[in-house]
């Protein structure tokens, strides 16, 4: 991609209002007498319906960034605006509200509730969301319409992750945040999960941020943001993205 292409793509996006806008994000962890600078001044915008991949090595700050964007942590300095409202000033209950109404999380290790069936795991979220789809619709969307009644222990890892995705998107979130969603899966199963994420992004238009250390995933993104040492090292716009089933690692 040339610099010119990048510039044009940027102009395209800036003409639309961003869903999430972060500027000057800094995060310093104090552990004993040592200070760790996890983020050192990040500026970032997420636009409606785009799928971005945050790529970085372990310790690059990508998880810290995702935590702050997802309302799980406060930045040491800098601001985050969601739909024009400043997140960074929210207290605990406002952040809970933000996560509950607007954010869908997908974790590396699924984090399903073992005592609830697939359908009930999804219902857990739809029951507290303002405008959810039905749990069975959400599970059909991820291709698990036949396994509603199964408990997590009765599902494979890939299936469990798809339930987790169904749980994340059933509330029709504005933002889907996936933290190493394929990290615990073999590549074949991983691809199936990525296809589901791609499908959600396309069909529901959910703004999706996916963090990974796996560079292979970068090809399916609209934009790839590389992080290193707590700073954005590089932003790439894919003019032609690959579909998930073409990806291998």
């Amino acid at each position: 991609m040339t610099m010119k292409q990048t510039a044009t793509a940027e102009t395209d996006r800036t003409s639309r209002p961003s869903v999430l806008s972060a500027s000057g994000l800094t995060k310093v962890y104090h552990s004993g007498e040592v200070s760790v600078h996890a983020l050192r001044g990040i500026d970032l915008e997420l636009y409606p319906s785009e799928l971005i991949v945050l790529l970085g090595a372990s310790g690059s700050g990508k998880s810290t960034l995702l935590n702050i964007l997802g309302g799980l942590d406060h930045p040491t300095a800098g601001t985050v605006f969601f739909d024009g409202v400043e997140l960074s000033s929210f207290g605990d209950s406002a952040l809970t509200r933000y996560r509950r109404d607007n954010v869908g999380f997908v974790f590396q290790f699924y984090n399903l509730i073992p005592s609830l069936t697939a359908e009930e795991n999804v219902a857990l979220v739809t029951e507290i969301a303002p405008d959810p789809m039905t749990p069975s619709d959400a599970l059909r969307l991820v291709g698990l319409g036949e396994r509603l009644e199964h408990f997590p222990a009765q599902l494979s890892g890939g299936e469990q992750q798809r339930v987790a995705i169904a749980r994340a998107i059933a509330k029709r979130p504005r933002l889907l945040l996936c933290d190493e969603p394929t990290g615990a899966l073999d590549s074949q199963t991983g691809v199936v999960v990525l296809e589901v994420i791609e499908k959600i992004n396309k069909e529901l238009g959910t703004t999706t941020a996916l963090i990974t250390h796996n560079a292979g995933l970068a090809d399916m993104a609209d934009r790839v943001i590389r992080l290193a040492d707590g700073m954005i090292a590089d932003v790439t716009v894919n003019s032609t993205k690959k579909s998930a089933h073409e990806i291998t690692w």
Binding site: G70, L72, D92, S93, T96, R97, R99, R100, D101, V103, F105, F107, N111, I113, P114, L124, V125, I128, A129, R167
Partner: peptide
């Protein structure tokens, strides 16, 4: 603890 923390991340309040 992990299960309950997951629920907090999913937007459940402390009371819930």
């Amino acid at each position: 603890a992990r299960e309950l923390a997951t629920l907090r991340v999913l937007g459940f309040t402390r009371f819930e």
